[in-house]
Design a protein around this nucleic acid. Sequence first.
DNA 1: ACCTGAACACCGTTCAAGT
DNA 2: ACCTGAACACCGTTCAAGT
Lengths: 235, 235
Amino acid sequence: MATPRKRRLPRGTLDRDTIVAASLRLLDEKGMRGFSMPALGRELGADPSAVYRHFASKDELVLAITDALIAEQDVPSLRGSCWIESLILIARHTWELGGRRPGAMALTASRTAAMPGTFAAADHIIGVFREGGFDADDAGRMYRSFVDFMLATAQQRAALLDLDPEALELDLSNEAAFRSADPRRYPNLGAAAETVATRTWTESFELGLAMLITGIEAMAPKPCRGHTHSVRPLA
Amino acid sequence: MATPRKRRLPRGTLDRDTIVAASLRLLDEKGMRGFSMPALGRELGADPSAVYRHFASKDELVLAITDALIAEQDVPSLRGSCWIESLILIARHTWELGGRRPGAMALTASRTAAMPGTFAAADHIIGVFREGGFDADDAGRMYRSFVDFMLATAQQRAALLDLDPEALELDLSNEAAFRSADPRRYPNLGAAAETVATRTWTESFELGLAMLITGIEAMAPKPCRGHTHSVRPLA
DNA sequence: ACCTGAACACCGTTCAAGT
DNA sequence: ACCTGAACACCGTTCAAGT
């Protein structure tokens, strides 16, 4: 309260890591809507335009945030267990990350950063597919499709959670409104409406993951025979 | 050239349908970035604020656009063929829609509108799952997970295509840059880098769809015995 | 009743000026 | 060399004023 807020920052205060960390804090607190250059300036205690000394554009900053978020993730590896379980663990971790940090997930999940964190994660997941007996090229193909599913699904929910409260409320009430569809006009929807309306996003994700995992194992040269996976189809 | 552009619009010119149609035109021409209230006003030849006579907010307009886009879709039904083929057709149609009209897909794919177009599409897809022998509740569950996968995947690519040209260029060059990752540090990525870097989005979608379809058929009470589906795992 | 136009509180980005 | 502050061309939304 004593220090005047308009003090000039010392010369070397800002760097790329500081700005990325402040961006992630801002995204966690205020969501994507609150992540603006003026807001970032306030978070840093600097003028918004100072960021442009370190990143050429907001988009370049977004890519740096993308890699930092990936690099932060520390999914415990499951050596000794079935490789399929590793995939399930990675997918669930990503899904939960989108639930906890919707702003960061919504902003970054469709971007590709050619940086160390991204490379390390890709290397890890391709390695998991090779455990399943896929050769390197097929493991690369499976990796791309698996990651696309995982990120796309997590991002979709994150984008919804990141909406402003009124829009989110409207969307959720619309899901519930499936119950009010005329069963004469929409007989199939009418018969399933209660289930569709009350289904949680996580239940829907889990069933989609079960479908995917079933498909992956069917394609795998080395399926995990005798091992029951932790996904529950239609449970 | 002769008519002065600032003529006042006749009283009943604007209505919800006109505004939604102009929004879709704008999204197709200029993408999500170009879809602003001032731009919509120009497209309509009206003052931007006139739209607020018909929609309470931009978000309410977005939900109307969502339903209109769904209602426009006319996926040919495949009575007589295997029900799995209908799912494949619907998924591919959605994917292609996101490629052709990225702005509209990116804006709407995570929203739920409780309106006729949405109800009719839901009814149709739940019906397809019932053809596969799922009871109504399970068909409702499968519908949610299938649609989430389909829309999320299509939206993710659409959001990328909707980026401004410079950001898109940066992202695509980053995908290619997976080739330059150090193979000593990232041996799995190194072995698959060429495949990962040159893989198209559609190839990745098709493999993901094949995984999902394999999983769905494995769960179905009435799989399509003796029928070869049009998805090609790892082809 | 419906559309306009000015106004408000914001954006991302640039660049001359300060230190 | 690095940060500031004013400026530019935008946003979504509101509301008194016009017709």
